Computed example of a mutant assay.
Amino acid sequence: MNWREQLGAAGLDPEQVTDLVRRALAEDLKYGLDVTTTATIDPAQRGTADVVARAPGRLAGVPVACGVLELFAADAGVHLDVEVQLPDGSVVEPGSSVLSVSGPIPAILTAERTMLNILCQLSGVATLTGRWQEEMSGTTARVRDTRKTVPGLRELQKYAVRCGGGVNHRMGLGDAALIKDNHVAAAGSVAAAYRAVRDRFGDDLPVEVEVDTTDQAREAIAAGADLILLDNMPPHQLRECVALGRASGRKVLFEASGGLSLESAAEVAATGVDYIAVGALTHSAPVLDLGLDLR
């Protein structure tokens, strides 16, 4: 599959990614041509370069990186041959070769930073997600992202979470409801807020209810909620709420959120919650160090 087909198979819109790539390339070319490359390299000089991992981690965004190279080459009127060594989701160690690109060296170097910016950012998200999931090994809990994403990168960042072994929360404001404390305050109670959403949008819409006390969790369960976010609760309280759900006779899923860290992930996951929500997966993930080396 080419890079567009790979994006489509991953549930991403190739046209949206193309638009993102073109805007990212335009940032580098806004002030004119690549003056450094133009001055130092013969436009006819050809060669091969490798994208190489400088640190251990997990990959995400390889098809996008290929798209950067192909789209820039097409705009520049040249051809670049790209060979992928490791696909998205692969674990890399320092020295691992991710992909190689051959063709005019000026084109490779001009596209280098845009390609690496995207690939390093998304691989950083996948790497951090993988670390959280590894900390919870031995439990059935899964790490989930939030809507705390870099503006314009939500679909790609959430894709990177999947590459890292995590699962996605809602993509936007319309594909699922999340009843938070302000909604509860405005509606008057947890039950009233939940009922209002169900009355307005029916039973098919996924609805999650955020609570911060055991009594609110009990109220949400009684109202019919089947997905409850337990906000800023210590492990003993998480266990109490999970027990309430099991005692209800219905399948109620629970998600822990707030004040979590990698160090506490295993303890929280062991309480029986189904998900752990981590906004840091997308808003604070360090980039994975990847570089481009000319042979």
Rank of each mutant, 00 (worst) to 15 (best):
M1N: 11
M1R: 12
A10R: 14
D13G: 06
D13Y: 09
T18E: 14
D19K: 13
R22L: 15
R22V: 12
R23C: 06
D28Y: 05
L29F: 15
Y31M: 06
Y31G: 00
V35N: 05
V35L: 15
D42N: 14
R46T: 15
R46D: 09
G47V: 08
D50K: 15
A53Y: 05
P56E: 14
G61L: 01
G61F: 04
P63W: 03
A65G: 15
G67I: 02
G67A: 14
E70F: 11
D75A: 15
D75L: 14
A76K: 13
V82D: 06
E83H: 13
V84C: 06
L86R: 13
P87S: 00
P87H: 03
D88P: 08
G89S: 08
V91R: 00
P94T: 05
G95F: 13
S97L: 10
A107Y: 03
I108A: 09
T110K: 06
T110R: 13
E112I: 08
E112L: 00
R113V: 01
T114S: 03
M115S: 04
N117H: 06
S123A: 09
G124C: 00
V125C: 05
T127R: 01
T127K: 01
T129C: 05
G130S: 10
R131H: 10
W132D: 05
W132T: 03
E135S: 15
G138Y: 04
A141I: 13
R142L: 15
V143W: 00
D145N: 07
T146D: 09
P151W: 04
L153S: 07
L156S: 08
Q157D: 12
R162A: 11
R162P: 02
C163Q: 15
G165A: 09
G165L: 05
V167K: 12
H169S: 11
R170M: 10
G172N: 13
G174W: 14
A177I: 12
L178W: 10
L178H: 09
L178Q: 04
D181G: 04
A185V: 09
A187L: 08
S189I: 04
A191M: 03
A192N: 01
A192Y: 11
A192I: 07
A193F: 12
Y194R: 06
A196N: 08
R198P: 01
G202N: 10
D204V: 08
L205P: 03
P206V: 02
V209E: 13
V209C: 13
V211E: 05
V211D: 06
T213H: 13
D215S: 15
Q216E: 14
A223D: 10
A225S: 15
A225K: 12
A225L: 13
L227R: 14
I228G: 07
L229I: 06
P234M: 12
L238E: 04
E240D: 13
V242A: 00
V242Q: 09
G245L: 02
R246W: 10
A247C: 04
S248W: 01
G249K: 09
R250F: 09
R250E: 10
V252F: 05
L253W: 02
F254I: 12
G258T: 05
S261F: 11
E263Y: 00
A265N: 00
A270K: 12
V273F: 08
I276P: 07
A280S: 14
H283Q: 05
H283G: 12
V287S: 12
V287A: 14
L290W: 03
L290I: 07
G291L: 06
L292S: 07
L292E: 04
L294Y: 07
R295P: 00
